[in-house]
Design a protein around this nucleic acid. Structure first.
Lengths: 112, 112
DNA sequence: TTTATATTTGTCAAATATTGACAAGTCTTA
DNA sequence: TAAGACTTGTCAATATTTGACAAATATAAA
């Protein structure tokens, strides 16, 4: 299993026979920095996720899963968090969603 | 269910009959900023988690669950991530842990 | 009401962190 | 060894976060 988002990008890139320079150009990124990203020495910038999906014709949703799961896993590992953290996070997402559905039902649409 | 870490702090504080000023002092924080934190207008600084646990005699591990689950939930909600993200994160944490165990078994202890 | 205390909000500069860019290095491999 | 691919180090520019303070608004007791 690929863990780091950097490895994930490198896999995509090499499988598609691209050089760092080529991919970096498409991502509007310095190839030296892309190298660091692939080697886990820098973080991939969230705002380029769409571009990345575009280059490899992947679904943005799938890329986001890779990206954010990596973020969370690292935080948990670095901070020695209990696995329960993820369960509680799930509950909280559900709570946030339900809360907003309710708001949507009750309140007027103020914009648009 | 309490969702935000700010609400969590506020609950702790009021249940213990403290004012913003009192808690802020213990956390070595400006009371105005603590107010913003409780109202979700600023983030609580990770480096003060220990202090917070100390003030209320709570286990740091439990506070970390609250803190990080909140972080993750907000990211997922804001970015409209699939719930699968959390499952994948779990796998990745397990992978990171097993990887490090293996390293620990194989390589020499370089420090201490 | 007035007064005192608690809380909230706005702002801003200082401290931190992230990013983009480039030079110089190593590693392949032809 | 020459060329291209990749890595590493550095640094200024940007962006974000933080600490601090003033001022506004609650809240509650006298």
């Amino acid at each position: 299993m690929k863990t780091s988002f950097g490895e994930y990008i490198r896999k995509l890139r090499t499988e598609n026979g691209m050089t760092l320079t080529q991919l970096a150009a498409q991502l509007e990124l310095d190839s030296a920095n892309l190298s660091k990203i692939e080697n886990g020495k820098r973080d991939f910038d969230e705002k380029r996720l769409e571009k990345l999906a575009g280059v490899f014709s992947l679904k943005l949703d799938d890329i986001k899963i890779e990206f954010f799961s990596d973020l969370f896993a690292k935080k948990i590992y670095e901070n020695n968090c209990s696995m329960e953290t993820l369960m509680v996070a799930e509950e909280k997402v559900n709570y946030l969603k339900s809360k907003n559905v309710k708001q949507g039902e009750i309140k007027f649409n103020t914009n648009e």
